[in-house]
Computed example of a mutant assay.
Amino acid sequence: MFCLVLQNDSFFSAAGAAREIQNCKMKAEQAMKTEFVRIAENLRAQLANIQKDKNGYLYNRKSDSRAEYSILEELEHKMSVNRKAEKTKILQQLAKIHNNVKRLQQQLEDVKPTSEFVDKLKEMLEETENAVNTFKDEQRQIYEQLLKDEKTAVNELSIFEKKVELWATSSSTTEKVLKLPSARISVNKTLGNHLPEEVIEFERFLQQTGGRQGGWDDGDHQNFLKVWTKHRGRLSYVDEALEYLHGRTKEDVEQHGIWYREFLILQDRKKESIKKWKEKQQREKEENLKKKEKSEIVQRLQYEDQMKKQKKEDNNNRQQFQHGKNRKQ
């Protein structure tokens, strides 16, 4: 902030005005640096703790739940790219402010007691102050958006906690694991024990949560998918989705988003399981074919060997018969 107070140019000399400007500028610059360093240190400490928790709880157990962690890895990569872009933008803004201050300092080194010089200083001060205010406004908007994202994340975590509690206390596989705004569908058939576990898990999930649209009607679900795909599942999709989903609350959309994430994870597991099952079937088919071919070869060799023995035996019999006939003659 700059506290230039020039009540009347006629009462102050140009040199006195310049000194007043420089003092105010130095105080404002020092206060801004102190506040920025304090905030940066706090953010750096928070980031270090978050990364420590992430590495401790996620990537050391990556192989246990590969599908979930691959989503987290992709999200982390996107966030890392966004942070780098934001850092570059902030550095550019700070560099602009720094250059303005440097130019102002250079002007103050050669003070000229003229009204034109004072007007030029005023213009430079206004330009610098506008740059600082613009930077502060942008950072405030980013901070407000982060607060909204944090609130949404807290709500999602709360829903997940309730879901885990239901899982822990459930004594039946048909108990509802997530309360959705629409009714569930009823399924009377029993899943066969011969199906892969991932297929059974996916089908059970559909039974318990309202089918392939999570209990929503086709129109609402398609509008949800359109916005979800546009935002690639980022939390920013919620506000835009509400514009298309009349009659749905923000909590409804957030819960449907949680349901859809789990739907995608279980569906991928099912597809992977079916793929492995088909590959296994193909291998077994090829092995059976090889066994059959080998068996046919063995049978053919046995048959040929038997025929050779039979032929040899027939030849011996003919020779014995001919020999006996010759002796009689």
Rank of each mutant, 00 (worst) to 15 (best):
M1P: 06
F2S: 09
F2N: 12
C3L: 13
L4I: 02
L4G: 04
L6F: 10
D9P: 03
S10K: 13
S10N: 06
F12Y: 10
A14F: 02
A15S: 05
A15T: 04
E20G: 10
N23K: 13
A28S: 15
E29T: 13
E29Y: 05
M32Q: 15
T34R: 05
V37L: 10
A40Q: 08
L43K: 04
A45E: 10
Q46G: 03
L47T: 06
N49R: 11
N49S: 11
K52I: 01
K52E: 13
N55T: 08
N55L: 10
L58V: 09
K62M: 12
S63R: 05
S63Y: 02
D64R: 05
A67N: 07
E68K: 12
S70F: 11
E74V: 01
H77Q: 07
V81M: 08
K84F: 10
E86S: 06
T88N: 14
K89F: 06
L91V: 02
Q92S: 09
A95L: 05
H98M: 06
V101S: 13
R103Y: 04
Q105P: 00
Q107Y: 08
V111M: 05
K112G: 03
D119Q: 10
K122I: 03
M124T: 06
T128Q: 06
E129R: 15
E129C: 09
N130C: 04
A131H: 00
N133A: 11
T134M: 12
D137Y: 07
Q141E: 12
Y143Q: 13
Y143A: 11
K148D: 11
F160T: 13
F160S: 11
K162F: 03
E165Q: 10
A168K: 09
T169V: 02
S171V: 10
S171G: 14
S171W: 00
V177N: 14
L178Q: 12
L180M: 14
P181R: 14
A183D: 07
V187Y: 04
T190N: 03
L191M: 12
G192H: 11
G192D: 12
G192E: 09
L195T: 01
V199M: 10
E201F: 10
F202N: 04
F202H: 06
F205H: 00
Q207E: 10
G215N: 06
W216G: 02
W228Y: 15
Y237R: 09
Y244M: 01
H246R: 12
R248I: 00
T249K: 13
T249Q: 08
Q255T: 07
H256C: 04
I258N: 07
Y260N: 07
L264K: 14
I265A: 05
D268Q: 14
R269N: 08
K270V: 00
I274C: 07
K278S: 07
K278E: 06
E284V: 03
K285A: 14
L289W: 08
L289I: 07
K290Q: 14
K290P: 02
E293A: 08
E296G: 04
I297D: 09
R300N: 12
L301W: 06
D305N: 15
D305S: 14
Q310H: 09
N315D: 04
N315F: 02
Q319W: 00
F321Y: 06
H323F: 02
K325D: 02
Q329I: 03
